[in-house]
């Protein structure tokens, strides 16, 4: 296994020296400590770590929803600025607009950007087809299952053509079967469309299955502990997750990453 660090002008998103300290009543809490992470164009980076290690905070900072205490976020070498459609987010709790239909939810980012009606309709229809949601276009979120709602959220985040897609434990609120289906769906997406993705999870299996690179974080204060590249041509890439997880290479990687996390949990 090779450990890589991708720095330099080729990075799509560059997280540079990001630290975060929260002031609470109990005193200062150091959530993140000098995190460096560069994500190349078309790369699928999965961040794993023990719970409470600050991986979600790192994502909120990457999204521009939270300000870092030190450090900065660069996209294509320029400071990223506040949250916006250049970095869209898929949240664990879906965060669909309850008053809008599936099609309206997906159209939201286009509408606020002032994309004209015809173009909007075309892109929403295309996205609905791509995510296999066409028959639900006029349904309201509360009429859909959790898995369907998350597909809508993914479609809504993709339709604005972000530079990078941020996914914060997107399958954490789903049942095991739905999760499997969506994991395979996301694997298909990243294969076909070559999106740049930063993906947070606590599931090592998910990380190995989806990632081009798995980033392991230390326990609090969160640091980047190790980065592990997953070969693009790994034999299990075209298998479904059930089969993939019994491949020797897959098991080997899973064990290696899990051992890293385990030492962090024990250290806490």
């Amino acid at each position: 296994m090779t450990t890589t660090k991708a720095h330099g002008p080729t990075a799509k998103m560059d997280i540079r020296g990001v630290s975060k300290t929260f002031d609470t009543r109990a005193g200062a809490v150091h959530a993140l400590d000098r995190c460096d992470l560069a994500i190349r164009e078309g790369e699928f980076v999965v961040v794993v770590g023990p719970s409470g290690c600050g991986k979600s905070t790192l994502m909120m900072i990457a999204a521009g929803l939270e300000a870092p205490s030190t450090g900065q976020i660069l996209v294509d070498g320029k400071p990223a600025g506040p949250a916006g459609p250049q970095r869209t987010v898929v949240f664990q709790r879906f965060a669909l607009f309850p008053s809008e239909t599936v099609a309206q939810n997906i159209a939201f980012g286009l509408r606020v950007a002032g994309v004209d009606r015809a173009e909007r309709a075309r892109r929403v229809t295309e996205q609905l087809e791509f995510m296999r949601l066409s028959q639900f276009r006029d349904a309201y979120p509360h009429e859909l299952s959790g898995g369907m709602q998350q597909r809508v959220a993914i479609a809504r985040a993709l339709v604005v053509r972000p530079e990078i897609l941020l996914m914060d434990e997107p399958f954490g609120a789903l049942d095991a079967q739905t999760r499997t289906v969506l994991q395979e769906e996301v694997a298909r997406l990243s294969r076909e469309m070559n999106y740049t993705v930063m993906f947070i999870t606590h599931s090592v299996e998910e990380a190995v299955y989806l990632g081009d690179r798995v980033v392991v974080m230390s326990s609090r204060p969160g640091r980047i502990k190790k980065e592990i590249a997953i070969p693009r041509d790994a034999g299990w890439r075209r298998l479904d997750i059930e089969e993939a997880s019994s491949e020797p290479g897959f098991i080997e990687l899973k064990r290696e990453i899990w051992a890293l996390i385990r030492t962090e949990i024990v250290r806490q």
């Binding site: 999204a63 521009g64 929803l65 506040p82 949250a83 916006g84 459609p85 970095r87 869209t88 987010v89 949240f91 709790r93 965060a95 669909l96 607009f97 939201f108 980012g109 606020v112 950007a113 809504r156 985040a157 604005v160 941020l166």
Partner: peptide, 17 residues
Amino acid sequence: DALLVSAALTLGANDRQ
């Protein structure tokens, strides 16, 4: 739900929207 506001922000909505 504050998460809806976060979602709208990341999709490019301004305060008025």
